[in-house]
C-alpha cells in the first residue's frame, strides 16, 4: 500500500558549525526535488517520542539531497546531532508553505539564530533566479555567527564582529529606494521577528515571517502548534496551525504576543 510524504532519509554528511550547532545532509530525492524555501521537515530524533521540525537549509535537486541545521537545545536535538553518516531515519516532508517571492524585484532576507538555515535556502534560490537579494543577519556574538557569506550585513549584540546592535541596526544601513517592489523575509526568534515587522511596517514594506511554535505532528492533524492571527470573528483573532497554514505568514496578520 502506498504512502506519501513519509520517507526514510539517509544521513550522508555532517559538519560542526560551532560548539552547539551542526549541519546535516540527507539523501531524499522526493524532498530535495520539490522543497521550496521556508518549508520544513519533521525528523525522528532517536528515542524521544515526537519528531523534530527543521527548516530546510539547502537542496541539491540533481543529487537528490538536502541539508538542515541543528542547534542542540534538548534531548531530541542532541540525539540527532549524534546521528552517524549512513544511518536512515524517518522523515515527513516537505511540510508547510514557503515564501512567495512572486512580484518583487528586491528581496531582503533577515533574521538570526537557527533562522539563518532557511534564509540560506532562500538566498540560494533567489540568486539562481537572478533576483536582487540583500541578507542582514543578527547574532549574540562572534562565536555564534554561522553560514555567513561575503556581502551579508552582519550585526552582533556584543559588537565583537559586524555592526554592534540588533538586526534592526543592520537593516537601518540599507538604502531602500523601492519599498513597494521590496519584500522582507524574516526567520528568527519571535522578539526579533516582531521588531523587524514593526520596522517593515514603518517603511511600508511587505514582510513575511516564518513563525515557530512547539509542534507535535507537523502534518496539520493535532492542532498543537497554533499561531494567533487577526480575524473578523467575535474573538478578533483565530488560532491557525503553524505547520499547515504557516509557517510563513504576512507579518501584518500575526497577533504578536
Amino acid at each position: 500500500m502506498a504512502t506519501r510524504k513519509e520517507y526514510k532519509i539517509k544521513l550522508i554528511s555532517k559538519e560542526l558549525l560551532n560548539a552547539d550547532t551542526c549541519y546535516l545532509g540527507f539523501e531524499c530525492p522526493e524532498i530535495a526535488g520539490t522543497a521550496v524555501p521556508g518549508q520544513f521537515v519533521n525528523i525522528s530524533a532517536g528515542t524521544v517520542f515526537l519528531k523534530r521540525p527543521f527548516g530546510i537549509a539547502s537542496v541539491d535537486r540533481e543529487k537528490g539531497t538536502f541539508n538542515i541545521g541543528v542547534k542542540i537545545v534538548g534531548k531530541g536535538t542532541e540525539q540527532i546531532s549524534k546521528f552517524e553518516t549512513g544511518m536512515e531515519v524517518d522523515c515527513l516532508g516537505p511540510l508547510g508553505n514557503g515564501f512567495d517571492f512572486e512580484g518583487f524585484g528586491n528581496v531582503i532576507l533577515t533574521g538570526g539564530g537557527t533562522g539563518v538555515f532557511p534564509i540560506n535556502f532562500a538566498y540560494e534560490t533567489l540568486t539562481s533566479l537572478g533576483k536582487n537579494v540583500t541578507v542582514c543577519e543578527g547574532f549574540r556574538n562572534a562565536s555564534q555567527v554561522i553560514l555567513n557569506k561575503p556581502g551579508y550585513v552582519l550585526t552582533t549584540d556584543a559588537g565583537d564582529t559586524g555592526i554592534k546592535g540588533t538586526v534592526i541596526a543592520g537593516l537601518d544601513t540599507l538604502n531602500i529606494t523601492d519599498p513597494s517592489g521590496t519584500l522582507i523575509c524574516c526567520v528568527g526568534p519571535i522578539p526579533m521577528m516582531k521588531a523587524i515587522s514593526v520596522w517593515a511596517e514603518e517603511k511600508n514594506i511587505k514582510c513575511l515571517v516564518s513563525m515557530e511554535q512547539r509542534m507535535a505532528c507537523g502534518a496539520g492533524i493535532c492542532l498543537c502548534c497554533t499561531v494567533k492571527v487577526k480575524d473578523d470573528g467575535p474573538d478578533g483573532f483565530k488560532n491557525v496551525r503553524c505547520c499547515k497554514e504557516g509557517p510563513v505568514f504576512d507579518s501584518r496578520e500575526v497577533v504578536w504576543q
Binding site: V48, F49, L50, G76, Q213, R214, M215, A216, C222, L223, C224, C225, T226, K228, D235, F237, K238, N239
Partner: peptide, 12 residues
C-alpha cells in the same frame, strides 16, 4: 479557538 500558548509537552 481552543487554549492559548504552548499546547504540547513531550513525555516519556
Amino acid at each position: 479557538n481552543g487554549n492559548p500558548g504552548v499546547r504540547v509537552a513531550e513525555c516519556d
